[in-house]
């Protein structure tokens, strides 16, 4: 794909793409109890790469992603599946949420669980699937 000769887009993308990636991580971790989650986070992260593709070119976007999109799908679905399978080791039904509470300083405590792993899996799978489609179109 020929690069768009827009200096404005290029300059803006340099700032916006990293911000989008950070925001997507924020949405991912926020997602369990409040709006957000792996799916919307993944979409926003792939928007970052989409902007890179249009502002710069396909090669740059591919280089910055480092891995092939389909590998991300594979890893994502695998991770989601694994998070669901872990409770089965303890005789619980598939996808049962397991939680651990990590005490932090003072009153604060961090609750981590398999749903977060599941969400990370969704996040990766969504980025992978969206970018696989986008890159395929951008090649033509």
């Amino acid at each position: 794909m020929s690069t768009l000769p827009s200096l404005i887009l290029r300059t803006a993308v340099r700032w916006i793409a990293p911000l989008l990636l950070l925001f997507s991580l924020f949405l991912l971790v926020r997602g369990h109890h409040e709006p957000g989650g792996g799916f919307s986070g993944g979409l926003i992260a792939s928007t970052g790469f989409a902007l890179l593709t249009f502002g710069y070119d396909l090669v740059t976007a591919r280089r910055l992603l480092r891995v092939h999109p389909s590998a991300l799908v594979l890893a994502g679905v695998g991770l989601a599946l694994a998070s669901g399978a872990v409770p089965m080791l303890g005789g619980q039904p598939f996808l049962t949420g397991l939680w651990v509470t990590i005490p932090l300083t003072g009153e604060a405590a961090l609750k981590l669980g398999t749903p977060l792993v599941f969400d990370v899996g969704v996040y990766l799978a969504v980025i992978g699937a969206t970018l696989a489609m986008l890159f395929a179109f951008a090649e033509e």
Binding site: S70, L74, V77, G78, L81, M88, G91, Q92, P93, F94
Partner: peptide, 22 residues
């Protein structure tokens, strides 16, 4: 009980992932 009912779903999914990888 849980495993017998979920395996017919989990096996094809795991298989699909592995087959996609190779």
């Amino acid at each position: 009980m849980g495993l017998t009912l979920t395996l017919p779903l989990l096996l094809p999914l795991v298989a699909a992932l592995l087959l996609f990888a190779v």
